[in-house]
């Protein structure tokens, strides 16, 4: 079923997102510095978040790989 692949894609995305948003990965961005007047942690969180939304959009709207007919 092409559906199975889609489900696995989404499941793996959720795992990736979970890892990206909790300790320890998130501690990388936990610095006291600022870029363009915005604290690094904020940039990391909102930036990665936006990226995640993009990833979700692509996965949701993209057609799955072609498979045998009749399923």
């Amino acid at each position: 079923m092409p559906d199975r692949i889609k489900r696995q894609q989404f499941a793996s995305i959720s795992v990736i997102l979970l890892l990206v948003f909790v300790f320890p990965l998130i501690s990388i961005a936990n610095k006291a510095s600022m870029i363009a007047g915005i604290p690094v942690l904020f940039l990391y969180l909102f930036g990665v978040w936006l990226g995640a939304i993009g990833l979700l959009w692509i996965t949701a709207e993209r057609k799955g790989p072609k498979n045998n007919p009749g399923t």
Partner: peptide, 19 residues
Amino acid sequence: IEFLAVYIGPTITAALFWP
């Protein structure tokens, strides 16, 4: 930034909407 957690969580769940 702690408040943001409550919105990140649903984003991760959104990935599981389909399955």
